[in-house]
């Protein structure tokens, strides 16, 4: 399970950098300096209202950042390019301490790469690691709206 966590996507980086990328109109990871306390996730707006993710709260709840964020402590991939398919400049920025956006790898799902979940699945899997079993999530479909989502 731990191994899986370590390979999991970077929720924070994804959202933060994604928002910056959208704002800037181009992927400019170098501009990201500050981590916001609260992140608004709007990935499945067609079904649910936006989800407010309290990042600050989670930094105190989680044992360490690696619980949610990718780390390279256990390198199980053959080459860097298995994950880092972006331009060398961006990879260099990531290697220098900047986090890659989740969407860098977890974009639209392709059946040709079934091992790479799309962004929605990557984020949900991360949340479910802890939240299944809290309240009625994992017992009832109502768990979705009782835990995170709001009905539209």
């Amino acid at each position: 399970m731990k191994k899986h966590i370590e390979k999991a996507p970077s929720l924070l980086a994804c959202v933060v950098l994604g928002l910056v990328a959208v704002a800037a109109g181009s992927p400019s990871w170098g501009d990201v300096k500050k981590i916001p306390d609260v992140i608004i996730l709007k990935d499945i707006q067609n079904r649910y209202g936006p989800v407010t993710f309290d990042h600050k709260k989670h930094t105190t709840l989680a044992e360490n950042c690696g619980i949610c964020h990718h780390t390279h402590a256990k390198k199980t991939y053959e080459t860097c390019g298995d994950c880092h398919t972006q331009a060398a400049k961006i990879l260099k920025a990531a290697a220098n301490g900047m986090l890659m956006p989740c969407s860098g790898c977890h974009g639209e799902y392709s059946p040709e790469t079934p091992g790479m979940p799309d962004l929605k699945v990557a984020l949900h899997k991360k949340c479910f690691t802890c939240h299944v079993g809290m309240g009625d999530l994992g017992e009832s479909p109502m768990g979705c709206v009782n835990t995170c989502h709001t009905r539209k």
């Binding site: 191994k3 040709e112 079934p114 979940p117 899997k125």
Partner: peptide
């Protein structure tokens, strides 16, 4: 499916993926 419980792909790839999951966990 938001949970990653359903993965669509080539059957041969899915068998490899399934075996990998069993081996990893």
């Amino acid at each position: 499916c938001p949970a990653g419980a359903l993965t669509f792909g080539r059957r041969a790839d899915l068998l490899k993926l399934a075996r990998k999951r069993i081996i990893d966990s």
